[in-house]
């Protein structure tokens, strides 16, 4: 276990270092000049040059990267070009909203996806299966903004049960989380179905039936535990995906998450923020996967964590 964790954390460091390098190079390759953007279109060239110097953008790219890395190792993510705020602080302030939305989104994905997938597998090839799979397909392919606006219209405007926009209480969280749940639930349903269909063919399912277990018990007790691992892996991925922000849903619902921060930073070429968000996303993906891998042996005793 300790060896496993040490190895995986070592991998995580390498992955994060690689990600920062790639992002850094991409920023360098973009044919736009952050110094010019800060100074403004009409500012004289001398102002632009002094800003460039101030930000260290005049130094060679390798040197810039090494400076960034050495700051990073001291926990300094740099300052935003535009707001002059520390990137670490900016990210930190967005973290609660992002985590809330992540938890809510994954909650609804599971709440929708798992029962739907189980039902589809249980009725494989019959009407409920087809209806669920079509619904899952629609959910997966529907645009985020459409589902979000639709939910807003129904529950906030027409029924007036929930607030229109904003952040704070659980009532604010409900609609954006449900939007993510509907969109992602389709993936979960499909994954759950195919995994369960496979499990239902196994010999031990036949044994369970021969023991006199009913259909529901076979599905939930004997099937689910054997079929759930791909779902756990998907949750691990979703942790990474949601951590880097869900731009559209955050915009529709006015949700102050990392996605909005990233979007604004990209528009303004605020490289330190972009780097920071990328870093967080990479870390979250690594940690999400690590979490999924560590949960797996608790579900299937045959799985051992190996360094």
């Amino acid at each position: 276990m300790a060896a496993f964790l040490a190895r995986r954390l070592g991998q995580a460091v390498l992955i994060v270092a690689g990600i920062t390098l790639i992002t850094f190079l991409l920023m360098y390759l973009i044919p736009a000049d952050p110094a010019r953007m800060i100074a403004g279109r009409n500012a004289p060239q001398s102002t632009v040059e002094s800003i460039r110097q101030q930000l260290g953008l005049d130094r060679p790219i390798v040197e810039q990267y090494l400076i960034y890395l050495s700051n990073l190792l001291q926990g300094d993510l740099g300052r935003s070009y535009m707001q002059r705020t520390e990137v670490g602080e900016l990210l930190w302030s967005r973290l609660p909203a992002t985590l809330e939305l992540m938890a809510g989104g994954i909650f609804f994905e599971l709440l929708i996806g798992i029962p739907a997938g189980l039902a589809a597998a249980a009725y494989r090839g019959r009407l409920p299966d087809r209806v669920i799979m079509v619904a899952a397909f629609v959910g997966v392919s529907a645009p985020q903004f459409l589902v979000g606006i639709l939910l807003l219209y129904v529950f906030a405007v027409e029924l007036d049960w929930l607030p229109l926009r904003g952040y704070g209480g659980l009532d604010n969280l409900l609609l954006p989380a449900l939007t993510l749940g509907i969109l992602g639930g389709g993936w979960y349903a499909r994954m759950m179905r195919s995994s369960m269909v496979d499990v239902l063919r196994r010999d031990y399912i036949r044994t369970a039936r021969a023991k006199g277990a009913g259909a529901g018990r076979i599905l939930v007790v004997h099937g689910l535990r054997n079929a759930i691992l791909p779902i756990v892996a998907m949750i691990g991925l979703d942790i990474g995906i949601f951590m880097s922000g869900v731009v559209v849903v955050e915009s529709v619902f006015g949700w102050p998450g990392i996605g909005q921060l990233a979007w604004q930073a990209i528009q303004r070429l605020d490289i330190p923020i972009i780097m920071g968000v990328t870093l967080i996303a990479a870390l979250a993906i690594v940690l999400g996967n690590l979490l999924a891998d560590m949960v797996a042996p608790l579900i299937d005793p045959r799985i051992r964590l190996r360094a």
């Binding site: 036949r206 039936r209 021969a210 006199g212 054997n226």
Partner: peptide, 21 residues
């Protein structure tokens, strides 16, 4: 209620006939 109570069944593959989890 008959299966497992009145009639028991043993299968060929002991390696795969028990639930691994």
């Amino acid at each position: 209620r008959v299966r497992g109570d009145r009639i028991g069944m043993i299968f060929q593959e002991p390696m795969t006939s028990l639930n691994p989890t």
